[in-house]
């Protein structure tokens, strides 16, 4: 396990393995998202209360789940980089931020589009929405901090601290619908509880979620490879790897 972990932390090994893995994740994402979107739009039955408006769930929930998942990944990578001084971990954290920010924006935007016909308003300062907006600002803050510091090592350390401190917002977002009275509905899929959706609706949501996960993996690997190119400046293996391609 640890040998594998250390091997993956080596830039030459990661650069090679990520080049091989990226197309697999990309194609899996494309297939799953197309199937999930088709199933969600045309096969899943309409909700008895929200009618066809509920179909927004097939893009809103995967985006919102990914916005949290990516932040947790970013914080773990930042912590690994900070504790074990693995440079690749900082590259992973840096690559997570723009992807996470885009999914957080998407979760807020699709949520807002869904809120208008259901709640009669685009936005309310409700606990779930506000904490998700804070998450977007955390991503922006992380990227701004990295961009503001010229020295890579200092930028890595400072942004890692911000990522780790900001992780406190993740349980707040997750449990906000239980801790406070909010307009937002409770969790649709829960690990411990029974899902609040019928299986005919749920299956397409799970397919979309799997597709979004594969999409994240493909984009993350591409972005980390770009980071590795800069961070491995002047190293022999990089020259060999580029000559092989």
């Amino acid at each position: 396990m640890w040998t594998w972990f250390h091997k993956l932390g080596s830039p030459p090994h990661f650069y090679r393995i990520s080049a091989w893995l990226t197309p697999w994740f990309a194609w899996a994402a494309l297939v799953l998202i197309v199937i999930g979107a088709y199933g969600g739009l045309y096969i899943a039955p309409a909700d008895y209360q929200q009618l066809d408006g509920f179909r927004i769930i097939y893009v809103h929930v995967p985006s919102a789940s990914l916005s949290l998942f990516i932040y947790v990944n970013m914080a773990i990578a930042a912590a690994v980089g900070l504790i074990w001084r693995i440079k690749l971990a900082h590259a992973v954290a840096a690559a997570c931020a723009p992807i996470g920010a885009s999914f957080t924006f998407l979760a807020l935007a699709t949520g807002s589009i869904w809120a208008k016909p259901m709640w009669g308003t685009w936005w309310v300062w409700d606990a779930r929405l506000t904490s998700e907006l804070v998450l977007l600002f955390l991503y922006f803050g992380y990227m701004a901090l990295r961009a503001a510091i010229d020295d890579d090592n200092r930028a890595d350390r400072a942004s890692a601290l911000l990522a780790i401190i900001g992780v406190v917002n993740v349980p707040i977002i997750k449990y906000s619908v239980e801790w406070w009275n909010t307009l937002h509905q409770p969790a649709t899929i829960s690990k411990l509880g029974k899902p609040s959706m019928d299986f005919d609706m749920l299956i397409w949501l799970l397919v979309m979620l799997a597709g979004f996960m594969c999409f994240f993996a493909a984009v993350l690997l591409t972005r980390v490879r770009a980071e590795v190119l800069v961070r491995s400046r002047g190293q022999k293996w990089l020259k060999q790897a580029l000559q092989e391609n």
Binding site: I33, A37, L41, A46, Q50, L51, D52, G53, R55, I56, V59, H60, S63, I99, S102, F103, F105, L106, A109, T110, I113, W114, K116, P117, F215, V219
Partner: peptide, 24 residues
């Protein structure tokens, strides 16, 4: 056609497509 929610459903899915393509 998604009934009275057509514009909301289509705009949410279109925006998702734009964000995914932009990411790639």
């Amino acid at each position: 056609d998604f009934g009275k929610h057509t514009s909301y459903v289509l705009s949410a899915f279109s925006l998702t497509l734009v964000v995914l393509v932009a990411n790639v």
